[in-house]
Amino acid sequence: MSMTKVNSKAALVLAVSFFITGQVSAKSDFEYGPVFSSFGKHAPVEGVSFAKDETFKVAFDVAKAAKTGEVNRKFESLARFINMHVANGVKQDNLSLALVVHGSATEEMLKSEFFKKRKEQSNGNEVLLTALMKQGVEVIVCGQSAAAHGVEQGALIEGVKMDLSAMTAHARLAKRGYSVNPF
């Protein structure tokens, strides 16, 4: 039997077992909330629980821009992280998240008025990034990427911080106990 057939059969068995046991929610079970009502859809997962005092300190790294005018799914991951953990009993005050942005995603840190001059469209990420920061998310842009893309500090969305580099931002966050989300 070829490896392709074995892998296909294994995938089918796994899919059927998830369907039968109900361990994975159907796509229609994804919902917004409880913190963000327009971002961060998530699904319930049976059998997962958290200690009453569970805490998370997580840094997310984003280097790739979304299509012009669209919300960057990597940015929305932070809203999903917050929504799904709060929905499952983690106190929102116990979530400390940071977003480190560099590379082509740097321009998505621009206020819409500056973004529009470059891309002829509004920045589809400004509302999300502002909402994240209102919920305590630290948003940091790489100074080296900003220089490479001609992004000046005064053109950044209100609340976005700039560090010397993305590497520097991650090193500083690591000193403060943040892990890096690998996704």
Rank of each mutant, 00 (worst) to 15 (best):
A15V: 10
T21L: 12
G22C: 09
G22F: 12
G22T: 12
V24W: 08
K27Y: 06
D29M: 11
S38P: 03
F39N: 00
F39E: 00
F39A: 03
G40L: 05
H42L: 09
H42R: 03
A43R: 03
V45F: 07
E46K: 06
G47K: 03
S49T: 13
S49I: 09
F50S: 02
D53Q: 14
T55Q: 15
V58S: 07
F60P: 02
V62R: 02
A63T: 14
A63M: 03
K64G: 01
K64Q: 13
A65N: 10
A65H: 06
A66Q: 07
K67L: 09
K67P: 01
T68K: 09
T68V: 15
G69F: 05
V71R: 03
V71D: 01
N72I: 10
R73A: 11
K74E: 04
E76F: 08
R80E: 05
N83I: 03
N83G: 06
M84N: 13
M84P: 00
M84Y: 12
A87K: 02
N88W: 11
G89H: 09
V90P: 00
V90L: 08
V90Y: 05
K91D: 15
K91M: 12
N94Q: 08
A98G: 02
V101S: 02
V101P: 00
H102C: 11
H102F: 09
H102T: 11
G103C: 05
A105H: 05
L110C: 12
L110Y: 15
L110A: 13
K111G: 04
K116W: 00
K117I: 13
R118Q: 09
K119A: 11
Q121V: 15
Q121S: 15
S122E: 14
N125W: 06
N125S: 02
N125E: 09
E126T: 03
V127G: 04
V127K: 11
L129Y: 05
A131Q: 10
L132F: 08
M133E: 07
K134N: 14
K134F: 09
Q135I: 08
G136C: 08
V137R: 02
E138K: 12
V139M: 10
I140T: 01
S145G: 14
A146P: 00
A147H: 03
H149L: 10
G150W: 15
